[in-house]
Amino acid sequence: MRQEMMEMRGQLEEQAFRIEQLQQESRDRYLDLDERMSRLNGQGHSGGKGESSSVAVLQPPILNTSVANPSEKRDQSVLKAEEAAYQSAFSLIRSKQFDDAKEALQQQLKAYPEGRYADNAYYWLGEVDMAQGRYDEARDSFQVVLSDFPKSSKVPDASYKLGRVYDLLGNQKKAKELLESVIKQYPESAASRLSDTYLRTMGGS
């Protein structure tokens, strides 16, 4: 059941990332269009530098791409490479090749230690280790999510899993503290509902 839950959460996570990417692309297109309209309306007849800017805006997309900032191109290339590495590791998790998945996630973090998917990679390292009974290692990975990525969307889930890990390690006091904090800080989250259920199995309130 644990492995099936991991697979389901993985699928949901992938869908969430796709939605996030589409939303970001939509926002980027809107901002780009807004900027172009502003230039056309405010600078189209100003001459000099303003006029040159308006002409550049009217160039075909292929020409705009050719003069794009090289650093932006590199950033996009790195992001795509990191995403490919992350998705590859995810495929290994879905196929239950946990040892290979762990190695792939570690390689991803080595190559992109501060990348966009770093928090997720640490989270799934924790999941993989937890599924295989490596609770000390799972604890360390979940803790990194909380310590190094406090604004990550994975924090509620990592907190819940960390609470479970502490329970499995025999530290019920720490486990309850974490689970109760999830309920208090993220009351509308799935992690909160899971924390409440788990606390009940521990005899908590």
Rank of each mutant, 00 (worst) to 15 (best):
R2Q: 15
G10T: 09
A16W: 12
R18L: 07
E20W: 04
Q21S: 14
Q24S: 12
E25P: 02
S26C: 05
S26M: 14
D28T: 09
L31S: 13
L31Q: 12
L33W: 11
E35Q: 15
H45G: 10
G47F: 07
G48F: 04
S52M: 13
S54I: 03
P61R: 00
P61V: 06
E72Q: 15
K73S: 13
D75E: 14
D75P: 06
D75M: 12
L79S: 07
A81V: 01
A81W: 08
E82K: 04
E82M: 05
A84Y: 11
Y86R: 02
F90W: 11
S91W: 01
K96W: 05
K102A: 12
L105N: 03
A111L: 09
E114M: 07
R116K: 14
A118Y: 01
D119R: 03
D119M: 03
Y122C: 03
G126D: 10
V128H: 00
D136E: 10
Q143A: 14
Q143F: 01
P156E: 06
P156M: 08
P156K: 00
P156S: 07
A158Y: 08
R164L: 09
Y166L: 11
D167I: 06
G170K: 04
N171F: 04
S189A: 10
A190G: 02
A191L: 11
L194P: 00
D196P: 00
T197W: 02
G203Y: 06
S205H: 14
